[in-house]
Design a protein around this nucleic acid. Structure first.
Lengths: 131, 131
DNA sequence: CTTGACCTTCCCGTGACTGGAGGGTTTATA
DNA sequence: TATAAACCCTCCAGTCACGGGAAGGTCAAG
């Protein structure tokens, strides 16, 4: 399979697939004309990566997950702890966004949003010691 | 005031303050020795920027907000619509993270997390057509 | 034989900084 | 007076995970 076909099959842009080769996540063969030639296992790997990335795992995490996936003697505890750590980081991001949202929606509600210049949003931004 | 003093006062790292000068968000004077010399209005601006950034506004948004802040004839509607748009983008980020969290926490719960290799998390990652 | 759809490499840009090298200035202390 | 610590400066490179685009080679169809 050429890169376009693989791209269609796994949903990753060709650019991304080339990038993944650059950083050593996949290692396709080459045809005589220089084109990348992917095997089924390469496609499988790329799908795995795409799915892991869509769950928010970093490239570094993905590398580890791939290693674990290919290691038949892995302990599921290792996978779980990695996922757990990622979950925790997702939770803290959500918490941070929720806080922003609460503050900002409060301010937006307080703002008349008309032609007049008076604006509680700007007033808040100009008041550093307030939360 | 020198940069260190301003940094303490507004909570932004000196590096960040220099960066903000580079991109034209503040324009402090210079002392004879080449040190930046900040006025109260500069500090005020930087505090404004820090607060806006902490609410997740992009640098570009911050630039607009500063302009609006300094424009006495602004309409609060302009500020509100900017904030509203930002709120919406926060909401979509939260939704995305919530989806990741739901999927991943489900998988984590299903994983034994012991010495055995069987792992629903890896199994899911290896199954592209599943959600 | 040409057109268009592929594929290749290479380099630059993104956002918002952060780290570090290499060096000048000021202030406090011995 | 020497020196050490604590400031300050500029400039360059790196972060993360790609995306855009240039410049050019290859392949199948009409």
């Amino acid at each position: 399979m050429n890169i376009g076909e693989v791209s269609n099959a796994c949903g990753l842009p060709a650019k991304t697939i080339r990038y993944y080769e650059d950083i050593g996540l996949v290692a396709p063969n080459r045809s005589a004309n220089g084109y990348r030639r992917f095997r089924d296992t390469d496609l499988h790997k790329l799908s795995f990566l795409g799915r892991a990335r869509s769950l928010g795992f970093s490239i570094d995490d993905c590398r580890t997950l791939m290693t674990l996936y290919e290691d038949q003697t892995r302990a599921s505890a290792d996978v779980k702890s990695l996922a757990q750590a990622h979950l925790t980081s997702i939770e803290s991001k959500i918490a941070e966004l929720n806080e922003m949202h609460a503050t900002l929606s409060h301010l937006v509600d307080a703002c008349a949003g008309d032609h007049r210049p008076d604006c509680p949003i700007l007033a808040d931004l100009a008041t550093p010691t307030q939360t």
